[in-house]
């Protein structure tokens, strides 16, 4: 039974991954003969393409914000809702809603909030007639504006994942912690959190994956233009855009693959070490 998933894995994951690595050393465009160009594509991205290093930096910032803000926020929501607040189902739905909205709608919602042209935020700041802060266009701040959108969505996602984990925690554990005089924070920190280790690992993995493949929000904002360059958006622009620079896009893909390997390897090493211990 292992054979089928293995074949699927080889054909649909490792096959394309290897092909990407091979293509990254060519000038493939989908038309015309393909030539080997050595490491030229890598040279171009590191030395010529003005979007590449900003993209790497933005991906790192994205990951940082997700780990430090979005994910803890989602966990906080989950813990609060798990206490059985009145109307918790309503809060749950509201917080989870952004995860379910279509991208087109999300784009419109935030354009209306952020635009300098009588947007909600600029109107509140007293610039309803224009001349306010260019949240989505100014490359020194638009990443942060989009990260607010991303957090708005990621927190809801993490909340749902974590909430399902919290529901599974044995109530007796919490009760005995309370009997021992632990306060809310202590109960969470020393009892609930360690018990939820498997869920935590899932959430960490989800967070890392979501940061690396972050793409849709910047794409609907300015197609990954200035201030919002991300590696995944660059790959999309190069490969699926009208240009079809498949060779160059593949080089970007390989870079993303290498970056993705870091957390994956770290995760696997930790897993194996644990298995050895047990």
């Amino acid at each position: 039974m292992v054979a089928i998933p293995l074949v699927v894995d080889l054909v649909f994951i490792w096959g394309p991954a290897l092909a990407t690595i091979v293509l990254s050393f060519t000038d493939a465009t989908g038309a015309a003969p393909i030539h080997w160009v050595g490491t030229k594509n890598y040279h171009t991205l590191a030395e010529v393409d003005p979007s590449f290093w900003p993209a790497v930096r933005h991906n790192a910032i994205w990951l940082g914000v997700f780990i430090l803000i979005a994910t803890p926020l989602g966990m906080l929501f989950a813990v609060l809702l798990d206490r059985g607040l009145q109307g918790s189902r309503i809060y749950q739905s509201v917080i989870f809603l952004p995860v379910m909205l279509s991208l087109a709608l999300i784009g419109i919602i935030w354009q209306v909030i952020y635009t300098t042209n009588g947007g909600l935020l600029n109107t509140l700041l007293g610039h309803g007639d224009g001349g306010g802060v260019d949240f989505l266009g100014d490359p020194s701040i638009n990443l942060w504006a989009v990260l607010v959108e991303a957090t708005w969505r990621q927190a809801g996602y993490v909340m749902i994942l974590y909430l399902s984990g919290l529901k599974a925690v044995d109530l007796a554990l919490k009760e005995s912690a309370a009997l021992d005089g632990a306060n809310g924070w202590q109960t969470f920190r020393y009892v609930v959190f360690p018990v939820l280790r498997p869920v935590n690992v899932v959430i960490l993995v989800v967070t890392v994956i979501e940061s690396l493949r972050a793409f849709d929000l910047v794409y609907i904002t300015n197609q990954g233009g200035i201030g919002l360059q991300l590696i995944s958006a660059m790959i999309t622009q190069q490969i699926t855009g009208p240009g079809n620079r498949i060779g160059y896009g593949s080089a970007l893909g390989v870079v993303l693959l290498l970056i993705s390997l870091v957390p994956i390897v770290a995760f696997l090493v930790q897993q194996f070490r644990k298995e050895d211990e047990s």
């Binding site: 354009q111 952020y114 635009t115 300098t116 042209n117 224009g130 001349g131 306010g132 802060v133 260019d134 949240f135 989505l136 266009g137 100014d138 490359p139 638009n142 300015n222 233009g225 200035i226």
Partner: peptide, 9 residues
């Protein structure tokens, strides 16, 4: 020009 053209559709 309008202010903030990069943020305006």
């Amino acid at each position: 020009y309008s202010s903030g053209p990069n943020g305006l559709t």
